[in-house]
Amino acid sequence: MKSIVGECRVLISDIAGEEQRVNDLNTDNYGELLVEIKQRIRFAQYEALKTVNKQMIALYWDIGQMIVTRQQEQSWGKSVVTTLSKDLQTEFPDISGFSAANLWRMKLFYETYCHNQKLAPMVREIGWTHNLVIVEKCKDDLEREFYIRMTRKFGWTKNVLIHQIENQTYEKTLLNQTNFEQTLSEEIRNQAMLALKDEYTFDFLELADEHSERQLELAILAKVEPFLQEMGGMFAFLGSQYRLEIGEEEYFIDLLLYHRRLKCLVAVDLKIGKFLPEYVGKMQFYLAALDDKVKLADEDPSVGIILCKSKNKTIVEYALRESNKPIGVATYRIVSTVPQELKDQLPAPEQVAKLLEGVK
């Protein structure tokens, strides 16, 4: 009996010692240490991937340059590239990317950017497949710069990038109507302007031409992921019919989003008809309440988006002129049709270049 009691005492002592060690870990903020180390490891992995990507882009740049140089100086024909591809694949069978088609893409990649000292270093900061999409689908250097910067900033996947180009995000972003110049600080103004488009295409929504605001909202809720993708890819969904209680009255915001880069709440008001000036006053009310009751201390001022079926640009301009809250007015369409005339309405190239400088 005494031996059993002794063993129990030892066991109890071991358990107490283990609990003490756990308590010591908790006392020493072990959980915080673990989180910090895991974050550091992930950061190191990400930096390593970025380094590998930069080296690969630099390699493809050099190969493209060598092909161009040999063709110019030694009059190489197309057959040489085919031969080069076969020899490289034989020498490096475990490395993909040396097909004849890809070698020609390297040549095009180099030719596209070799005379642009601004873009040449920037192309190393996004993936090869992203670069190919931009080279093949964009028509001038300003448009390419826009998509390079936005891909780098917002982490667009290849499919998101293709979607943005096909829906003319470049043109629609540069033509957006906001009052951000007057209402946002210089630090985030350009970033905010580039986060809002003039028009959104919701061709993924299963809606008839005639629909109610509630039907529009429910259709969006059923397709939240493609909706956020069309909005730009950096929005998080916080809720629909977001309730605000003010002066013992209830008010509801159609959609409440959060922009991860701008670090601000974004209220979306859905309208199925044309824009009316009084919508701005209602949105100002929502934004004031969000800033006072919901916004965290380290977040930027809340932003409003009034999303209408149609708008008159002059009326929007007047309605926003005296507003003291950051608001943008955009339109939406259900059917995907691309208005080519947008290109003729773009700001002057120097204005576009200045705006893009704000995207880091």
Rank of each mutant, 00 (worst) to 15 (best):
E36H: 05
S323V: 12
W156F: 15
Y110G: 04
Y113A: 01
Y46N: 11
E32T: 09
Y46A: 15
S336W: 04
F204W: 11
I57P: 00
F237H: 11
D24P: 02
R149D: 05
S310W: 07
I95P: 01
N102F: 05
G233M: 14
Y318I: 13
E171W: 02
K309H: 13
D141K: 06
N26V: 14
L262R: 01
S79N: 13
G31W: 04
K274L: 02
Y258A: 02
I246A: 14
T331Y: 00
L257P: 00
D300N: 11
D269W: 00
E250C: 03
L257K: 01
G77S: 07
F43Q: 15
T337I: 10
K139A: 12
R260Y: 11
S85W: 03
L356F: 08
R70T: 14
E341Q: 09
W156D: 08
I272W: 04
H163V: 13
F109N: 03
V329I: 12
K86C: 06
N23I: 07
P347M: 08
Q191I: 07
E245I: 14
P277A: 05
T178F: 03
G358I: 08
F154M: 07
I306H: 02
V294H: 03
E213L: 03
V10K: 11
K50L: 11
Y110N: 05
F43Y: 15
V35F: 11
N167A: 03
I148A: 06
K295P: 02
T201G: 07
E19A: 11
L256G: 12
A100S: 12
K197M: 09
N26M: 13
I305K: 02
D344F: 06
I246G: 12
E210C: 13
F237Q: 08
